[in-house]
Write a protein that binds this DNA or RNA. Structure first.
Lengths: 348, 348
DNA sequence: TATCGGATAGAAAGCGCTTGCCCCACTCGT
DNA sequence: ACGAGTGGGGCAAGCGCTTTCTATCCGATA
């Protein structure tokens, strides 16, 4: 029924061992033999049995990429870059690897389950992207799982995610705190004193770091930070819209709204516009990430650019062992403040 | 070193067979025994060997999702929906499946290679999203591969992709032609007579169908279609920008620009705005897809909404055999015209 | 010319799991 | 009380491939 190595061997009049060697190309095989085998493979339309091969060789060519939300370009861009380096088909890498991206939907359980699934498959490497959940038991569980993976020889890289100490995982963390700090500083520099802040979900590291940067900037400038000026929500447009409505309800005198990310900022803009406020004349808006659409917003969004593609590419290379991991296994990736039309001097 | 089934069996004082049955839960096992086994699994921190299991059972729990560009929300949204139904961890489905999304980057070769890789892994199902390339040899190669997959028991579903006759694959195709037709009709209805069209890459089905719909609408209305009013480009913002510059250079009297998709439309808006043209006062702009950001554009984009998430979910269910495939294996999904601020009566 | 070593190819032992088949010990039916 | 039925569990044969260890064949070396 299904063609096996043995069938190919029979047809090429060689032993299965030889066919295997031709296919894996890590053992000398005479050119004539090789050709005969290859022809047989072709004629029989043979396709290697992955599981069997992985079992026998005790390795697999699967590489997992975990993302929080695959529909969000933030993750899409990173995943794309990682995958290009992993060298799925057509990539630079030699062997063909199956880069699989797994969508955790931000759920800790699914994250864990996916890690187990990848462990099951004896994945060659795993890259986790995006912020982590700050729930202690879960963090511990993930850490334990990561340790197990690295111990089993799976290379683990965290991309845009805080380091996981003692797990053997490499980390490329975004400087969310610093970026947020500079962003708020910019707004303060323009003269804003009443800034609303739309934060992401409570329990995520990314949320906390960005919020901390924002507050640190306020504190450093000696500017008040009314707790009512901070609202938590999801990392999406809808949430930004709602949060802004709430923010302006709580205090219509706000002159700037800082959003957890660009999508949220877009929602904020929509809400402001609908309530008849002009951007930036009446209210300045700022985002984070600098996704491709941010420059096309009207007015273009002031934000912090995160080198998503570069970081992803680097993470991918490290995962494939094609780039030296950073010293100490940890590197911080800075974001760059992009000042655009959505922020300006507050109204008199 | 690594814990195997046998180790668990030894520890639980049962045979390996029993452990396997407990783990797969498709065979009666006494509650007490089951518990003993489960405890041993836990104590030993046992993780099933996926390849070995797939080999022995001749099936795997891998489900492949092929997308053209994972950084594009168009695909991200579909992938997300598909995956939710596949029931990766936490999904509705019972067994835990590893939904893997593969990024072909629009390259025919990579598409083929990924299919082979999935075939290697004996994937349980494969969902291909997005338009196909119209290169005859490649189309034939893909069709052959799909046939092979379905013959091997892998369920294949095409989502937002034209049917592949005689391959055993189910298809959920978008009515690109119809959608484009209605969109252009709308513009014509407003009074536009000189419409620029920014098409996608030449050789894709999606591109051709949308263009055909556009032209059919023009023809039906007896409106001229100057070949110089059509420009081809990529499906991204940048391309839309460039194409629009070119279009306005060729004929500054155009009163409307129809874009291949929303991203392209956004680029078009940017280009128009930069040349001092107002939207829609001077030039109307229309997109396609209705991605989440389209409603936030200023002015909001007139476009054709494609039920990406719904179609993806349905494709996912069909792939899992949880929904009856459409009669004849083929269904067409209509798009809905969304008239918004970016289109209006042309200037006098 | 006898001997060696390199280059190839084959034999066979698993890799860790699933599952068909068989067996045992009970519980029932009569 | 005895044979049939049945739930629970073990045996062992693979699944298709990789890889170590051998066995050959040659031209090269002495």
């Amino acid at each position: 029924m299904t063609v096996t190595l043995a069938d190919v061997a029979a047809r090429a009049q060689v032993s299965p061992a030889t066919v295997s060697r031709v296919l894996n190309g890590n053992y000398p095989v005479a050119a004539s033999t090789r050709e005969r085998v290859l022809r047989a493979v072709d004629e029989l339309d043979y396709v290697l049995n992955g599981p069997a091969s992985s079992l026998a060789a005790a390795t697999s060519d699967l590489v997992g990429i975990l993302v929080n939300d695959i529909a969000d370009p933030f993750f899409g861009i990173m995943a794309s870059a990682i995958q290009a380096e992993i060298g799925g088909p057509g990539g630079r890498a030699g062997g063909e690897r199956l880069a699989v991206v797994c969508n955790t939907g931000g759920s800790p359980e699914r994250e864990l389950t996916y890690l187990t699934l990848l462990q099951r498959q004896r994945a060659a490497a795993v890259v986790l992207t995006g912020g982590a959940v700050e729930d202690a038991p879960h963090a511990a569980a993930v850490a334990a799982k990561l340790r197990k993976l690295t111990e089993a020889g799976t290379r683990v890289v965290l991309c845009g995610r805080p380091p996981a100490p003692d797990t053997g995982a490499y980390a490329l963390a975004f400087d969310n705190r610093g970026g947020a700090h500079r962003l708020t500083e910019h707004l303060l520099g323009l003269g804003h004193r009443r800034l609303g802040y739309i934060a992401g979900p409570e329990e995520r590291t990314t949320t906390r770091h960005r919020l901390e940067g924002h507050r640190a900037a306020l504190a450093a400038a000696g500017v008040e930070d009314d707790p009512r000026w901070t609202v938590h929500g999801r990392y999406d447009r809808q949430s930004g819209y709602e949060a802004t409505v709430e923010l302006m309800r709580r205090d219509p005198s706000l002159t700037a709204v800082v959003a957890a990310n660009d999508s949220v900022a877009l929602g904020a803009c929509a809400a402001l516009r609908e309530s008849g406020l002009r951007i930036p004349a009446d209210v300045s808006v700022a985002g984070f990430d600098d996704l491709p659409f941010s420059v096309d917003a009207v007015p273009a969004l002031t934000t912090v650019r995160l080198p998503l593609a570069e970081a992803g590419a680097r993470a991918g290379r490290i995962a494939m062992g094609r780039e030296e991991p950073p010293p100490g296994g940890i590197a911080t990736v800075r974001g760059e403040l992009m000042v655009r039309g959505s922020s300006a001097v507050p109204r008199a």
